[in-house]
């Protein structure tokens, strides 16, 4: 289909001989928000990194845009105070104007007076907002977001997801989101991909995400709780 922003066909990924993803096919349309669900070790992070071209794979991965932005899981972003790095320095890794920086900071709810502050002195929640701002400051077409809520309290979680939702609504943005949080699917996803090495389910959450599929995905004992209101 021509309005696909991403087409994945028969994707297989092996890391040091071990098959992490096997024969996976799915597609993402422009302006979709795809949530990728799966248990620990299902290959979610590997999938995002493969889609970004960071690891070798077999099969087909085709993007119709090169304008991708990525938020790695926080374990992959080294937060260290070994050298001074201000919020402003962090933005200067990208070619952006001051106006773009202050606009995006405002949009994620950070005051522009934090610009000269050390990026590593921010609280976990503020730092999370900062990297969202960083990922979106140059208006990417696609945002690939890996477990943005790990390590944030529940109150914080809701803000981060509604923040993403806001950007998704206001901008010409396609989102691929990896998460553990089932509730995010009902509130924010236009499509869902269940991953456990293979694709277990794919489609609109209401159709694809049946109790049976969830059981298949997570094994046993997942509390199934479908929200009554519609997605987007």
């Amino acid at each position: 289909m021509s309005d696909n922003i991403l087409t994945v066909k028969n994707l297989t990924v092996k890391l040091s001989g071990e098959e992490i993803i096997k024969d996976l096919s799915f597609s993402v349309k422009k302006r979709d928000s795809l949530v990728i669900l799966g248990p620990n070790g299902a290959g979610k992070t590997t999938l995002l990194r493969t889609l970004l071209g960071l690891i070798p794979y077999q099969g087909r991965v085709e993007w119709s845009t090169k304008d991708l932005s990525y938020l790695p899981p926080k374990e992959l972003v080294r937060r260290s105070s070994i050298f001074p790095l201000t919020v402003e320095d962090f933005f200067n890794f990208k070619k952006v104007t001051n106006k773009q920086i202050t606009d995006i900071l405002e949009a994620v709810g950070l005051p522009s007076k934090i610009l000269p502050k050390g990026a590593y002195t921010l609280s976990t929640g503020q730092f999370q907002r900062l990297i969202i701002a960083w990922a979106l400051v140059d208006n990417p077409k696609v945002l690939l977001f890996d477990e943005p809520t790990s390590g944030i309290d529940v109150g914080g979680q809701e803000t981060i997801y509604s923040l993403l939702h806001k950007f998704w609504k206001e901008r010409d943005l396609t989102i691929l989101l990896v998460t553990h949080e089932l509730s995010v699917v009902w509130e924010h996803a236009s499509n869902v991909l269940c991953l456990n090495k293979r694709g277990v389910c794919f489609g609109s959450p209401n159709i694809a995400l049946t109790p049976e599929k969830l059981k298949e995905l997570y094994g046993v004992g997942v509390k199934f709780h479908k929200h009554s209101h519609d997605t987007y």
Binding site: L52, L54, L68, S69, P72, V77
Partner: peptide
């Protein structure tokens, strides 16, 4: 800071 971010 992050090799992945740099590559992207």
């Amino acid at each position: 800071i992050s090799e992945d971010l740099a590559k992207v």
